[in-house]
């Protein structure tokens, strides 16, 4: 599983970093960044899916 943030959609809600702080961080503006390059370790998959589900802007894209 890989994850990225669509920066055109992200509004800096930060719901993702609350659901999965190991995976998502914040840039200078408070918009989401992905902290893990490449494949996510398996133990973070569920949290990452939750982060995606909790984003009101639908800005999180998961590729499997």
């Amino acid at each position: 599983m890989r994850v990225r943030v669509d920066q055109d959609s992200c509004q800096g809600q930060q719901m993702c970093s609350i659901a999965a702080p190991e995976v998502f961080g914040s840039d200078e503006l408070g918009h989401a960044t992905v902290l893990i390059e490449g494949d996510l370790p398996e133990h973070l998959h569920a949290k990452t899916r939750r982060a995606q589900a909790n984003c009101p802007e639908d800005a999180i894209i998961i590729e499997e």
């Binding site: 509004q11 800096g12 809600q13 930060q14 719901m15 408070g30 909790n54 009101p56 802007e57």
Partner: peptide
């Protein structure tokens, strides 16, 4: 609650700018 896609801070380009301070 795990699934919580709330919009207490709004949504779109006017998402509350102070949301992280409020939290």
């Amino acid at each position: 609650r795990q699934h919580n896609r709330h919009v207490a801070f709004g949504s779109g380009i006017h998402r509350c700018a102070g949301s992280n301070l409020a939290r």
